[in-house]
Computed example of a mutant assay.
Amino acid sequence: MTSRTSNTPGTAGAFSVGGEYRVNRLGFGAMRLPTGPGAEREAAVTVARRAVELGVTLIDTAHLYGWGANEELLAEALHPYPDELLITTKVGVVRGGPEGWAYDARPESLREQVEEGLRRLRTERVGLLQLHRIDPKVPVAEQVGALRDLQQEGKIGHIGLSEVTAAQLAEARRTAEIASVQNRYNLFDREYEPVLEACEAAGIAFLPWRPVAAATGSDPSSALAAVAAELGATGPQVLLAWLLARSPVVLPIPGTASLVHLEENLAAGDLRLTDSQRRLLDRGADRP
Rank of each mutant, 00 (worst) to 15 (best):
G160F: 00
I159H: 00
L54A: 12
P220W: 14
V138Q: 06
P80H: 05
G157Y: 05
A69R: 08
G10Q: 14
P34D: 10
E40A: 11
R41N: 06
L33H: 04
R4H: 06
L33C: 05
P136K: 04
N186E: 08
V138I: 10
D286N: 15
V114K: 00
V138P: 09
T35P: 13
L118S: 10
L74K: 03
E264H: 13
A205H: 06
N70D: 07
V52I: 04
P208E: 01
A141N: 15
R174E: 11
H132I: 00
S16T: 13
A228H: 14
P98H: 03
E53V: 05
P252Q: 03
G55E: 00
Q168T: 15
Q143S: 13
R95D: 08
E40S: 05
T35Q: 10
L128P: 08
V138E: 04
L259E: 14
D282C: 10
Q143H: 04
A213R: 06
F188C: 01
L169E: 14
V140N: 11
A14T: 03
P248Q: 13
P208I: 00
L33W: 05
Q130E: 12
R49P: 15
T123C: 02
R95N: 07
R246F: 15
A44V: 09
V56R: 15
G19M: 15
F188Q: 09
S16Y: 12
E200D: 12
A201W: 01
S258G: 05
E72V: 03
H132F: 00
R283L: 10
L147H: 13
D83T: 09
L129E: 08
V52R: 05
R120D: 01
E112F: 03
V91T: 09
G29R: 02
D149P: 04
R120K: 09
S3W: 01
D104P: 09
I204A: 11
P82G: 05
A44I: 02
A179F: 10
R272F: 07
L147C: 10
R50D: 13
A241V: 06
T11R: 15
A105E: 08
A105N: 04
P236H: 09
G29D: 04
V94T: 08
Q152T: 06
S247G: 06
A202M: 07
Q151P: 05
T123V: 05
Y65H: 13
E193D: 14
V56N: 07
G36I: 02
N265R: 10
F15P: 00
A241S: 12
R210N: 06
A77L: 02
F28P: 14
L259P: 06
E99T: 14
D219N: 08
S222P: 13
A176Y: 00
A267I: 03
L118H: 15
E264M: 04
E124Y: 05
G92I: 00
Y21F: 12
W67G: 00
L266V: 06
V45A: 04
G284S: 07
L26C: 03
H63D: 07
E142P: 09
A51W: 12
P37V: 01
G117W: 05
